[in-house]
Simulated assay, not measured.
Amino acid sequence: MRYLWIVLLILTGCTAKNKPIRIAINAWPGYEQLFLAQEKGFFEEAGLSIQFIEFGSLGDVQRAFEWGQVNGMACTLIDVIIADYQTNRDPKIVLVTGYPKEATDVLFASDYIKNVEDLKGRHIAVEFRSLGMYLLLRALESHNMSINDVILFPADPTSFPSLFDKGYVDAAVCYPPHSIQLKDRHPELKPLYSSKEITGEIIDVLALESKLIKENPDIVEKILKVWDRAVKYEREHPDEAVSIMASRENLTLEEFLTIRQKINVLSLSEQERYFTTPSPLDATSQKTKNLLQDVHIINAAKCSDNFLHREAISKVLAEK
């Protein structure tokens, strides 16, 4: 498996006493406000030393956190739950960056497959312990099927085009920008199921290890303020912001805007409800844990009951 490592330093010359916060991230238009903040110097102005380490897939992001290579990760709620089960690093969600409101994460199939039921006995490319697996499970569940009805082909999404080239797989679960590259190479692929059908279940977040938060209690508040500033900047300067973000994703402006319009990126005030008690994420977390347990990816009983760092957001909003 090939990994793409691109280290983006927000601050340079960090001393041993001021080590940068390392955050794993993959290409996804819903996270681009973090890089926009970097480009505009918002992190530096907030006194934060951040190092983004970019990987080729969500699965790689999750593993980097599990192996202790990073302090945090931009990922989905699904990845947080799995990482929590796999390690004792106790990831806490500090930011809900947004969620897809239309078909962004998609189960694509070759044109000879007419519906989800036709996937029985077929090979499906998927990131096994990540978002792709969850979407596949929900697609099968919604059609009274199980994982035993299909043949899994665990793979990194960067390899999906070549898997179809060689005829190794009949379907794949993919997301932008990888899905754009996949469709460019194989325009015959058609969508069978997508995130649009389970709106609210796939949540994009930023999670940090609990130890980091405890040792640096002001970090979360600073990150929240920077995020809110970046979201506001995009809304006030859309042409400049989109140009910066599209270029970094290696997408045309049209491609980026098409995807971006399908993602609800949240300001702090818009995501406050996720950090209340109870939270809308409580039920979503439990549903996700149950589904992942059914296919033996986790043992739900050994997972945390609380993935949220709730304290900071109300304090930051009170200061506005």
Rank of each mutant, 00 (worst) to 15 (best):
I25K: 03
V70W: 14
R22T: 10
L34R: 02
Q51K: 15
F43R: 05
E44N: 09
R63Q: 12
G56H: 01
A74L: 10
I23P: 06
F35G: 04
S57N: 08
Q33G: 07
F65Q: 06
F35T: 06
E32V: 02
G41A: 01
F43Q: 05
I50D: 07
W67G: 01
F42C: 03
G72S: 13
A24E: 11
L36S: 03
G47A: 06
F55C: 13
D60M: 08
S49E: 08
P29I: 00
I25E: 03
V70Y: 14
D60K: 03
Q51L: 15
F55N: 09
A64C: 06
G68L: 01
L58A: 15
M73Q: 14
D60V: 04
T76H: 13
W28E: 01
I53E: 06
Y31V: 08
I53Y: 00
A74H: 07
V61L: 08
G56E: 05
E66S: 06
R63T: 11
A46P: 04
E39M: 10
A74I: 08
E45Y: 12
G30H: 01
A64M: 05
A24H: 09
I53T: 07
L36K: 05
T76I: 05
S49H: 12
Q38L: 10
T76A: 11
W67F: 12
G56I: 01
A27I: 07
Y31D: 08
Q51R: 15
A27P: 04
S49M: 03
A27G: 10
E45N: 13
I25F: 00
L48Y: 01
W67L: 13
L58N: 15
F43N: 02
V70Q: 14
F52H: 01
K40C: 11
Q51H: 14
G59P: 03
A24D: 09
L48F: 04
E66R: 04
R22N: 11
L58Y: 14
S49W: 04
G68M: 03
V61R: 02
E45A: 15
E32F: 02
M73E: 13
L48W: 05
G68H: 06
P29W: 00
I50A: 10
G47L: 06
A37T: 02
L48C: 03
E44I: 09
A46F: 05
Q33Y: 12
I53K: 02
A37F: 00
Y31A: 11
T76Y: 12
A46Y: 05
C75K: 03
I23F: 09
Q38I: 07
T76Q: 13
R63M: 10
N71C: 11
S57P: 11
D60L: 11
E45V: 08
K40D: 09
K40Y: 08
M73H: 13
A24P: 10
K40A: 10
V61I: 07
I23K: 09
N26K: 07
V61T: 14
I25N: 04
Q38A: 15
V61E: 06
A64W: 03
A46W: 03
F42A: 01
F65C: 04
P29M: 00
I53P: 00
I23S: 07
E39K: 15
V61G: 04
A74G: 10
F42D: 01
A24R: 09
C75E: 10
V70T: 15
F35L: 14
T76W: 11
